[in-house]
Nucleic acid binder design. Structure first.
Lengths: 237, 237
DNA sequence: CCGGATCCGAATCGATACTG
DNA sequence: CAGTATCGATTCGGATCCGG
């Protein structure tokens, strides 16, 4: 059952044998947001066949990347091992690299809460954020609602139901939700062009890529400075 | 012919669609060493079916990762585009990550010149090298002979024929080959345990993992300090 | 609903042979 | 040297089914 070997004794080859199968790295991406149940993963990867998800989870466990954790009276979750979590800077760098080649979305492309959470992490400029005042955004994209809190070089993202409450306090990044966000805005996939610097926030509003729902619209500038992927910037942890 | 889509609008997904197919990242790995002809790639990846190599090269070109360059009167080579070269820190980090999970080599595993060249790059500690005097090694592993020159944080690796001359002055990293190397040594796959810190050079010689051919044997210590992969050190450069 | 297992047609991969 | 062509072996994808 050892997956078809590439026949080389090499670190890159070993890595590809561990996480190079179809869908594997997307499972890792979602697990980097937090532990997930089987059903969560299936929802976050709508096009994955259930047998493939099952097979990959087994392989990732054998490889020491993922582990299966029973939850008391609450089912079970999959989570990354410490070794699997070491993939975080790699997945983030891959996200920045791929971002530059993203075109327009295909008709049936979706945006999931986990992929968007990771996308914001890939775009987060800790250096820029450190020079700016703290900020607190609520972001609506497609059906996904995220609460995004930036404090110096610290980034917290919580996934909210449309209602406005976190999906599950045990799962995902914690955020402080007492106060209302300073800015709430909605965007479509065109927000990519803001992140890439192709559009300023003002232009994005003009072109209806982006719309302020409530709060201080001038914070959009700070958002654009905090989340940005410039060409040639796949580098670094 | 758009490859089976994952159906998500996300940078990581785009990256995986560009370089996630079987063999693709190993082709990129070899091209990170230098431009390569079709036949070079086939030799460097002995188990790749020729139709797959052909297909992947086409896909990588469509994705803007690789380009095909005719050489005057000398055939043609494939090389990474600037965008493809941005994968270097990612491939190196993946190599470090996979290195930690490498076991013993399978009976039919091979070590190629390009994979070994990249392995040394993944293990190179520029920070440690910067504090050490320059060094100049010749390294024999399996059929591969590499000339490895370290000068502060600069690393140069040239692939030599068993004869002792570079394979092709146009291809691969240049090195200064006038002088003889200060240390020539031979090793088996067990050199991995030296890189990982599991074995000191002295122990490696005792266990016949490593043998000095000529030159100053004390330089092995410097080599081990210069090339090292500690657990948990997969970080992207 | 959760966490899968099973079945089957479609697409891809792997090995070998062959060509300009 | 630089690939195409062919064909059986594997894997993937989509759907259904099942035990708790």
């Amino acid at each position: 059952m050892a997956s078809r070997s590439y026949g080389q004794y090499c670190g890159v080859t070993t890595a590809v044998e561990l996480i190079g199968e179809r869908w594997a790295l997307l499972i890792v991406r979602d697990l980097l947001v937090g532990p997930r149940r089987y059903t969560d993963l299936k929802q976050g990867l709508p096009k994955i066949p259930t047998n493939i998800l099952s097979t990959r989870l087994k392989e990732l466990q054998e490889g020491g990347v993922v582990r299966r954790v029973p939850l008391l009276h609450c089912g079970l979750v999959y989570e990354l091992t410490p070794y699997g979590r070491e993939l975080e800077p790699i997945v983030l760098a891959l996200g920045r690299w791929g971002f530059q080649q993203m075109g327009e979305p295909q008709p049936d492309d979706v945006v999931t809460a986990d992929s968007l959470t990771m996308a914001l992490r890939t775009a987060f400029r800790a250096d820029a954020a450190a020079t700016l005042p703290p900020a607190d955004y609520e972001l609506h994209i497609a059906d996904v609602v995220l609460r995004v809190q930036v404090d110096a070089s610290d980034l917290r993202i919580a996934q909210l139901e449309p209602a406005g409450r976190p999906v599950d306090p045990r799962l995902g990044t914690q955020a402080t939700l007492e106060a209302a966000p300073a800015l709430t805005f909605a965007a479509g996939p065109g927000i990519r062009r803001v992140i890439s610097g192709e559009l300023t926030p003002a232009e994005a509003i003009d072109q209806e890529v982006l719309a302020v729902v409530s709060g201080d619209a001038t914070l959009l500038e700070r958002f654009a400075q905090t989340f940005s992927i410039e060409p040639g910037a796949a580098l670094v942890a």
